[in-house]
Structures are given as C-alpha cells and as structure tokens.
Amino acid sequence: MSEPFPVDLKYSKEHEWVKVDGKTALVGITHHAQDQLGDVVYVELPPVGKEIKAMEEFGVVESVKSVSSLFCPVSGKVVEANSALNNSPQLVNDDPYGKGWIIKVEMGNPADTNALLSAADYKKLVEAK
C-alpha cells in the first residue's frame, strides 16, 4: 500500500490531490477515494486543451458499483490526460499518487492552491468520518 497522505501534495475536500510544479499541476484522486470506490474500471478523461474552472467537473471515474464525478481543484487548461488509464484504469487503485494520475493542468491562477488542504488537514477530514 502506498503512503495514504503524501506531504508534498495539496488536497481537495472532494478527495482529489494536486502536485504543483511551477505553473503546472498534476491531478489525481486520493488513496482514500480509490479505497472507497473499490475496483476502478473506467476513467472518462477530458480532451487535451479543455479549459476548466476550479472545482468544475472534468470527468468521471467508474467503479464496478458506482459513478463518481472528478473535480479539478485548480482552474486552467488540460495539457495532458493519462492515456494509460484507457487500458489500465486499475492504476488508480494500484498507484493513486503515481501511475494513476489523471490530468496535467497548466494553471490559470496558481493562487487557487492556497484554498486547498495540507496533508495533515486532509488526513483529519478523512479520519473525522
């Protein structure tokens, strides 16, 4: 099992994570989210070039039992989508913070990340449930 709350990431209350690298942000769903979903069998990815507003739905992740919306914690333009998920959606379960990343966004407003949770705060949110 991977580390459930890596400290170098920012988190949304909707259980997405963001890894900031300059003006770009990598986005995925958290260990907790994939654990709650169970076996992920399909990830609907947005087209590259799509403009997204912060906390707007940008795709869906389907497990055997359910469909969940994906929300992008930052606004910007999708510059890459993880096409490996088309054939191997279970990467979201196996490696949620690594090979299971979902999109890469060129941030329109890097200050968006200030509204996100630290690893410690996100851990509190999950454990309060």
Binding site: G38, D39, V41, S63, V64, K65, N93
Partner: peptide, 9 residues
C-alpha cells in the same frame, strides 16, 4: 457486506 478487502473483481 458489499465487498471485502480483496475487492469485487
């Protein structure tokens, strides 16, 4: 129980 740690699949 809806599933166990092994998972539905």
């Amino acid at each position: 129980p809806v599933s166990y740690p092994a998972g539905i699949i």
